[in-house]
């Protein structure tokens, strides 16, 4: 296995798909952005800080960051039932927890910052694209943040550690047995701290460490792409 290894789409193990990032795509939102890894495309809109309804959820010590992740019905090849599902609710919470350490919520007590993320095309790693889009949209909304957040899925295919898995790679099988592991990760852009980790499959300690290291490197590169996209606003 250690000899020549090729990924289905011919990428190198440490290579991501083509990344596209745009800021300010939704004029009515306070901040918005889109981010895509190849065929996985997320758009994020940020509203607020604004009044939190229902009011009993208000926190007088710090603001609430509320995320809403949805996969649109046409985002996958077989039509998906629209509306919240168990999966989308879990991912929404996961994304909120991934973003929270970077956002200075204590400046907005008793309010909410709403982040709506929609996946318009899905080809695995959607939650990572969602975190990246949300990070840029929050910055675009003028919300004070300590740093930007970069996210990418790492993992293992056969015996090789890779980043940014596609759906084909996630479903990769050797002799009818699942042979792929994916680890969605998010890292804070300046301090390099880990803020999201979600593993499907199995990895031993050494492999996990290796995967995290590679993901961290990639995430910091993605943060640079986010910065570039944000700074592009000037040219308009």
């Amino acid at each position: 296995m250690a000899e020549k290894f090729k990924r289905p789409d011919g990428r190198k193990p440490e290579e991501t798909r083509k990344i596209e990032a745009k800021v300010g795509i939704i004029p009515r939102a306070d901040g918005s952005a889109s981010f895509s890894f190849g065929k996985s495309k997320a758009i994020a809109a940020v509203y607020g800080p604004r009044q939190l309804i229902p009011r009993h959820l208000e926190n007088p010590e710090k603001g609430v960051l509320r995320c809403n992740y949805t996969m649109l019905s046409f985002s996958v090849s077989e039509r998906m039932r629209p509306g919240p599902s168990r999966r989308s609710q879990e991912i929404s919470h996961e994304i909120a927890k991934a973003l929270e350490p970077a956002v200075l919520l204590d400046q907005f007590p008793n309010t909410v910052i709403d982040v709506f993320i929609q996946i318009i095309e899905a080809d695995a790693s959607t939650r990572c694209a969602a975190v990246n889009a949300a990070s840029m949209a929050l910055a675009n909304a003028g919300i004070p943040m300590k740093e930007l957040i970069g996210s990418v899925s790492g993992g293992k295919l056969g015996k090789t550690i890779i980043v940014d898995l596609t759906k084909d790679e996630e479903d990769y099988k050797i002799k009818e047995e699942k042979a792929a592991t994916d680890v969605a990760t998010a890292f804070l852009g300046r301090s390099g701290k880990l803020s999201l980790l979600h593993m499907d499959g199995d990895l031993n300690t050494k492999e996990l460490k290796e995967a995290l290291e590679l993901s961290k490197k990639t995430c910091l590169n993605i943060v640079e792409i986010q910065k570039k996209a944000l700074k592009k606003v000037k040219e308009k």
């Binding site: 970077a102 910055a139 943040m145 300590k146 740093e147 930007l148 944000l230 700074k231 606003v233």
Partner: peptide, 13 residues
Amino acid sequence: KTDKKRTIVVPGE
């Protein structure tokens, strides 16, 4: 400094 144009900064920079 040279052309006095203001630069854009992003969070964490």
